[in-house]
Design a protein around this nucleic acid. Structure first.
Lengths: 330, 330
DNA sequence: GTGAAAGCGCTAACAC
DNA sequence: GTGTTAGCGCTTTCAC
């Protein structure tokens, strides 16, 4: 049978209030009493029931994180970083995966806001702020991560998208490239929009023709880069900007399979999700945009706990900057 | 203010029992009443409180998954697969990360078994079954994943480790290799032990000297492979078996940086965590052992739900087999 | 076909 | 310095 706080109280010869206060250190308890209580706890093997507790207090000490793709190392690393911070503060992390599917996101938003978690971190795949907002109970602690909405109705933590892409295009131009193609992520996402916008601005500012054909979109998941690459090569690009890490990795692989060599045959600038693995092999032959994934996760964790503690806190928008690592000079 | 079941009952002019039975479809309710109830629910925007529910019923519809390294794509993909299955069954997934640290695992086991989840999936980093067992309340639904303990006191889902490694060594021997080194994961893990054991058996069966120097261990995390590789190269290996995906990726990178070419300078057989990304670039020049990560996750999900439904179910040990993909013949 | 009410295990206001 | 007790929101037994 389950051991409850009353069993402990009875055995220790004190009231349940005292037991509760003892384990929670929430009011003064004499040394003698404390010892009796702990002895009883030990003897009975008592563990306070977490769901009774959270039912009573209304606090679950749990936050939810809705991500578009867990198997993507960008989010995997972010999850790790969030979990790392939260566990430090005694919080747990519930993960939900949407695979970039808006309906799955909607379902998860409904489920998680119904008393399961104290707050929510969302890397949303939605494009409609109205729809999104309608799913969130007013005052529910929520922080958008990596992807934001135009109307600033939620706090957010994201990375700057404009500057690195703008810079990338300018650098390519200066190295003599005139057919610069770009592979974006899902067109509906704020991150994609900002990156494509930066690209367009840079193209215009460099005095290059604004050629819609040079802009293609993938879905940032496995095996979506190939079609994009084929399209751009068919349009005789001499340089490529790839807006997402997994697609960048795959682009490298496909270029290699096609017998194309970086720098010699084509120039590349790419977002890399994490500064390791495949990239060192090529990083001296391409410009890399390195996102601060760990910081993103850490900030997201900090922000959501802040909002949980004070749901009335003002909307907070945090934008981290990516590192730009130019290719090694020839 | 929070809308409760009593508010709904009052507005609908029925009892809370009826409201409860209506939304849970747990006893007959007349059409008329049902409509009144749903009208009231809608009007008030009522959502049943999940923690009150789980407190009352004792079911959380949540399972925990303790993993050694979330940022590792092997586990990332497994998490995705588990979450995918569980969400199908109306369950949530809580993630905890140990970074291969036994104390963190202990903490997480304590926290998660204390009424937070209905059951637990664990890829344990512990080596002491006693210690592990002492942390699990008797009868608590738990399934070991990827790593098991000698004493079969828990159900488990894992991959066969012996066969692919044995085969790898034999193939290398047949290709004329005589100094075959191996890079293992953490020595305390069952997976590592089985793999190293397979290696030893194969070495002996091939009639090669049993040279302890050719066995080195990494920790299966970022940047641990380099030291292993250096050691093995210093011992003039002509072939390498790498027992884990991340270390295999890094081995490829380091070999490349050292100017060593696969097949020509050194032969390689490696576990690859997922059949994508870096590997296609090299897969024709090395034997790959491909673990069925998705199936692992799916089976883990199935098994834990089965145990949650019937905690008395007999211990179940499921062993999946990895695919062996030989290098393309020259 | 529906209602009344007990009570899950805990916390915290109030009392002494 | 400690005890008594109400009650969190829900499910479910028992009764009619």
């Amino acid at each position: 049978m389950k051991v409850t706080i009353s069993d402990v109280a009875r055995l220790a010869g004190v009231s349940t209030a005292t037991v509760s206060h003892t384990i929670n250190e929430t009011r003064y308890v004499s040394d003698e009493t404390r010892e009796k209580v702990y002895a009883a706890i030990k003897q009975l093997g008592y563990t306070p029931d977490a769901s009774a507790r959270s039912f009573r207090t209304g606090k679950k000490r749990t936050v939810g994180f809705i991500v578009p793709d867990i198997s993507n190392r960008f989010f995997g690393t972010m999850i790790e970083s969030v979990e790392n911070y939260l566990s430090t503060k005694g919080y747990h992390l519930i993960i939900a995966n949407t695979k970039e599917n808006m309906d799955r996101e909607e379902t998860n938003l409904r489920l998680l806001t119904a008393g399961l978690v104290d707050g929510l971190l969302v890397a949303s795949t939605m494009d409609d702020p109205e729809r999104f907002r309608s799913l969130i109970p007013t005052g529910f602690p929520l922080v958008l991560v990596d992807r934001t909405f135009d109307d600033n109705s939620f706090s957010s933590v994201s990375v700057s998208n404009f500057q690195p892409i703008y810079r990338a295009v300018c650098r390519l131009y200066q190295r003599g490239k005139r057919r610069i193609g770009i592979i974006g992520g899902l067109p509906r996402l704020s991150s994609t929009k900002e990156r494509i916008s930066a690209y367009r601005h840079a193209i215009v500012d460099c005095g290059l023709p604004d050629d819609e054909e040079l802009i293609v979109y993938g879905d940032s998941m496995e095996r979506s880069a190939r079609a994009c690459l084929d399209a751009l090569l068919a349009r005789s690009c001499d340089a490529l900007v790839v807006c997402q890490g997994l697609m960048a990795s795959e682009t490298l692989i496909y270029l290699n399979q096609k017998g194309l060599t970086l720098k010699r045959d084509i120039e590349l600038v790419a977002f890399v999700d994490f500064d390791s693995n495949i990239n060192p092999l090529f990083s001296d032959k391409m410009d890399c945009i390195i996102q601060p994934v760990e910081d993103l996760g850490l900030s997201a964790g900090e922000q959501i706990l802040r909002r949980i503690e004070d749901p009335e806190a003002p909307i907070f928008e945090k934008i981290l900057t990516s590192a730009y690592r130019p290719a090694a000079e020839a």
